[in-house]
Every structure is written in C-alpha cells, then in structure tokens.
C-alpha cells in the first residue's frame, strides 16, 4: 500500500511544533480540562439518604425525575452509590439508628463533599428535635452543608429551583 503524502509523520511534526509554542507550565490537555470543568458545572450526581423522614420528601425527589419536572435534563442525576456522588441530599430528622450509616455514606463520597438538607423536619424548628431518638446533624456533615431547602415537604418545583440556584 502506498503511503499517503500526509503521513502520520507530518501530523506528528505539526503537533510537536505546536507543543513547542506552548508555555512549558501548561500541558496540552489544559483546554480540555477547562472544558471538562465547564461541563461538569452543569452535571451533578446526587445521592439521597433518608435518615428518618416520613417518606414525603422522597416522593417529591422521585417526582423531580418524572417527565413533568425532568431534572435529568438540567444535569441532575441520581446515582446508586455515594462514591459516584457530588452532592448528598439528606432528608428527615437524623434518627440515632441511621447516624452511623449516614456518616459512612458521607465519608464514602469523593472530595469535595457537598451536602444539602431538605425539609422542615431536619431544621432547628423541627418537631422531632425534642425526641430521644433524634440527634443533631453530625459536625463534619454540617460543615459541608451548602444549603437547606425548607418546606413540609417542599414541592418538586421548589427543590429544583433551589438546586439550580445553589449550583
């Protein structure tokens, strides 16, 4: 087979020239990385952990991904494992029985970890705060919290609006 005049050698030469033109500190994939970051800003992997809610907030988060609200179209995606998650959504008061599992899930997330709490049951004014079985949000999770979405429960529209404003 006859070799093309525009062989890979030629292409390699051009590329090598281009690399020489670039400043030494910036590798060639910088631009790609920048784009990657740009698109990642619009793609959020979410893991939801129910720590003792009454299941209404879960219903509303599920509704967020039905064809009416379709949060996936806006870049939000539910993932099965906290290891894939950028964002942890925590619902309900923190039941003591769920505390260990919650902390394990939080630590399994890759850095940087971000947390949003949802619903009136988890805030300072929650009716469950006086209960023997409910504990405050663990310290390390509270420091990673970027927002709280109030409501009993917040409607899917409110959740979506808050998520988009925060990110």
């Amino acid at each position: 087979m006859r070799k093309s005049p525009f062989s890979s050698d030629l292409l390699g030469l051009v590329l090598r020239r281009m690399i020489k033109l670039l400043p030494a500190s910036k590798p060639i994939y910088t631009r790609l990385q920048r784009e990657d970051r740009w698109y990642r800003m619009r793609s959020v992997n979410i893991r939801v952990v129910d720590c003792g809610s009454s299941n209404v907030v879960e219903q509303e988060i599920q509704a967020l991904f039905n064809p009416v609200y379709d949060a996936e179209r806006l870049g939000f995606r539910l993932v099965a494992s906290p290891r894939h998650a950028d964002l942890l959504l925590i619902t309900g008061p923190i039941a003591l029985n769920m505390q260990a599992a919650l902390i394990a899930a939080f630590r399994a997330m890759p850095e940087p970890r971000r947390v949003i709490t949802i619903g009136d049951d988890i805030g300072e004014e929650s009716v469950f705060n006086d209960s023997y079985a409910v504990v405050p949000l663990p310290h390390e999770i509270r420091t990673a919290r970027i927002a709280h979405i109030p409501g009993d429960p917040p409607s899917p529209e409110q959740i979506l609006r808050s998520l988009m404003r925060v990110l």
């Binding site: 129910d50 720590c51 003792g52 809610s53 309900g92 008061p93 039941a95 003591l96 029985n97 769920m98 599992a101 009716v127 469950f128 006086d130 209960s131 023997y132 079985a133 409910v134």
Partner: peptide, 15 residues
C-alpha cells in the same frame, strides 16, 4: 427495620 425510629409515640405524650 427500625432505622427511621424517631420516638413518635413518646412525642405524642410529651409535646
């Protein structure tokens, strides 16, 4: 079960 135990029956009595 029991992971979401939040002491509701006692809250009824106390609050």
């Amino acid at each position: 079960l029991g992971y979401t135990h939040k002491g509701i029956e006692r809250l009824f009595q106390r609050k």
